[in-house]
Simulated scan of single mutants.
Amino acid sequence: MKKVSLAVLLSLGAVASGAYAQSDQGVTMSTDPSKIADIESRAQNLQSQQDNMQNMHTQAPAQKSTHHKKSHSKPMSGSSQ
């Protein structure tokens, strides 16, 4: 029982410290047009990169070759008796 209580306590401590570390940034609002334009351009760049990666993944199987390699098997050299 003590081990379970200790594990729960440590887990709660980790979650609380993570929440505390994130609380100081939060969501900010800006009315500066240059900041807004910069953020929008970054978002568009990220979106286009994600679209390109998704298109590459969907096209990759179509580009695979259907040719099979021939297996070159050498005749086994047996002892001549």
Rank of each mutant, 00 (worst) to 15 (best):
A37S: 08
G26P: 00
A37R: 01
Y20Q: 10
S80G: 12
G13K: 02
S5D: 12
S34P: 00
A7L: 06
S30N: 01
I39E: 10
M76A: 11
P75C: 03
M29L: 09
D32E: 04
L12R: 11
S71F: 08
V27C: 05
T28F: 07
A43N: 12
S73E: 12
M53R: 15
L10W: 00
A14E: 04
M53G: 04
N52H: 07
Q81H: 15
Q25A: 14
T58V: 06
A16W: 03
T31W: 02
Q54V: 02
M56Q: 13
Q63P: 00
S30E: 00
Q22D: 14
S11F: 14
H72G: 07
I36H: 00
S34D: 06
L10E: 07
G26E: 02
K2H: 07
S79E: 13
H68M: 14
D32R: 00
I39W: 03
H72K: 09
A14N: 03
Q50H: 06
K35D: 03
K70C: 14
T58G: 01
Q25L: 09
Q54K: 07
D38H: 03
V27T: 07
L46Q: 09
S65L: 01
L12M: 15
D51K: 05
T31I: 02
K64V: 06
K69G: 14
Q47K: 09
M29G: 07
A21L: 06
S41D: 08
K69Q: 11
H72Y: 12
V8I: 04
L46W: 04
Q49T: 13
P61L: 03
H67Q: 11
Q47L: 09
Q47I: 06
A62F: 05
A14F: 11
M29H: 12
G18F: 06
S5E: 14
I36V: 13
L46H: 05
M1S: 14
S30A: 02
T66P: 03
P61F: 01
T66I: 04
K70V: 12
D38K: 08
D38R: 05
K2S: 15
D32P: 01
L12V: 09
L12Y: 07
T31E: 13
S11T: 10
P33F: 00
L9G: 14
K70D: 14
V4A: 11
G78N: 15
S17Q: 11
R42E: 08
S77D: 09
Q54F: 06
V27I: 14
S80L: 10
D38F: 06
A43T: 10
A21K: 03
D38S: 05
A62E: 09
K64E: 09
D51Y: 03
A21Q: 05
G13S: 05
Q81V: 13
Q44Y: 04
K2N: 13
S73F: 06
V4Y: 12
N52V: 10
G78L: 15
P75G: 04
Y20P: 01
H57P: 02
P75Y: 03
I39Q: 10
N45H: 05
Q47T: 08
A19M: 14
A7G: 01
K3A: 13
K3P: 02
Q49K: 08
N45T: 15
I39N: 11
A19G: 10
Q47P: 01
N52M: 08
E40K: 08
D51P: 01
S73M: 08
M56L: 09
I36Y: 01
Q44G: 03
M76V: 11
Q25V: 10
A37K: 03
S17K: 00
D38N: 11
S41F: 02
